[in-house]
Design a protein around this nucleic acid. Structure first.
Length: 281
DNA sequence: CGGCGCACCTGAGTGC
DNA sequence: TGCACTCAGGTGCGCC
């Protein structure tokens, strides 16, 4: 499900009612996610704590507790967070349940179990967050996401620009759907080698990235199969896809049939006219 | 050492 | 119906 917009929509939804709530009880499912659930740390640091803030870094959500600990959640491909009445029975693939002090649960559901849940203890949270953040690239809405940064990091790279955009160590939060949409908006072919992108093209990529992500967040994210915001509402940005999953259909801008190829093992869509193949790999 | 292929999982869709 | 097969929004490992 989730790239930056879906994670951000989830965060904004949870912000309505989660801050200030105390965790009264924690129930873990039996199966492991990408990593085993940190049962002991959850019991030690999250249980009985109060959630004071919810932040996002890349595609991760950071739940900050009043004791200084941090609950870190990544949704993987199919992870969902929802606020559900405590009386409701658990669903298939519910893996974590935080029972709150208002008769509501924060529940984590993830059929494919590619997500992950971690806990940073109060005494180590600062240092762990620094190390965690250092491994991730710039946030698309930060000032550090600029032409100079992209030129420097991409200077010696021959890989396809689409793979570069999706590399979390370079830029945070962009996945397969939005990489396709961003490059269409910038008029750049996904196979263009990174080291051939001009400053003017980086500018278009920056502009397109922010525009696409902003519009997607405003639309409530994209609901391809089953993404629901924490409010239980689907997103509608998929109605605005220009290229993603539109192979063979007419380009909304010029009517040329949308092309498809595989880049880095991922389905890649582009308009051969609006995104001319200059130099490609 | 950059960059690729693949594994990790379940479920939905398709075609026979 | 049912079975076999393909594909899916992410990440990180091993390998060349």
């Amino acid at each position: 499900m989730p790239e930056l917009p879906e994670v951000e929509v989830t965060r904004l939804g949870l912000l309505q009612s989660l801050p200030g709530r105390r965790v009264k009880k924690i129930v873990c499912g039996g199966k492991r996610l990408r990593t085993p659930l940190p049962r002991a740390l959850l019991a030690l640091h999250i249980l009985a704590g109060r959630i004071v803030a919810i932040d996002r870094r890349a595609k991760y959500l950071l739940f900050r507790m009043d004791n200084g600990s941090v609950l870190l959640i990544h949704l993987g491909m199919t992870g969902k967070l929802g606020l559900i009445p405590s009386a409701e029975p658990c669903a298939v693939h519910d893996h974590l349940r935080l029972q709150l002090d208002n008769n509501m649960d924060l529940r984590y559901n993830d059929s494919r179990r590619f997500g992950s849940i971690m806990v940073w203890p109060p005494t180590e949270a600062r240092q762990m967050e620094n190390a965690f953040s250092a491994r991730l690239g710039v946030e698309p809405f930060s000032r550090r996401f600029n032409t100079r940064y992209l030129r420097e990091r991409g200077r010696s790279k021959k890989q396809a620009v689409k793979n570069f955009l999706m590399d979390a160590r370079m830029i945070a939060g962009i996945g397969n759907i939005y990489a396709n949409e961003i490059l269409f908006g910038a008029g750049i072919h996904p196979l263009s080698p990174v080291n051939t992108i001009s400053d003017g093209e980086w500018k278009r990529i920056i502009h397109s990235t922010r525009r696409v992500l902003t519009r997607a967040i405003r639309a409530g994210g994209s609901t391809i199969s089953d993404f629901l915001g924490s409010s239980g509402n689907p997103g509608y940005f998929q109605l605005h896809f220009m290229v993603y999953d539109r192979a063979g259909k007419q380009c909304r801008r010029c009517s040329t049939p949308i092309g498809k190829c595989i880049v880095g093992g991922r389905a890649t869509y582009f308009c051969p006219t609006c995104q001319p193949a200059g130099q490609t790999i």
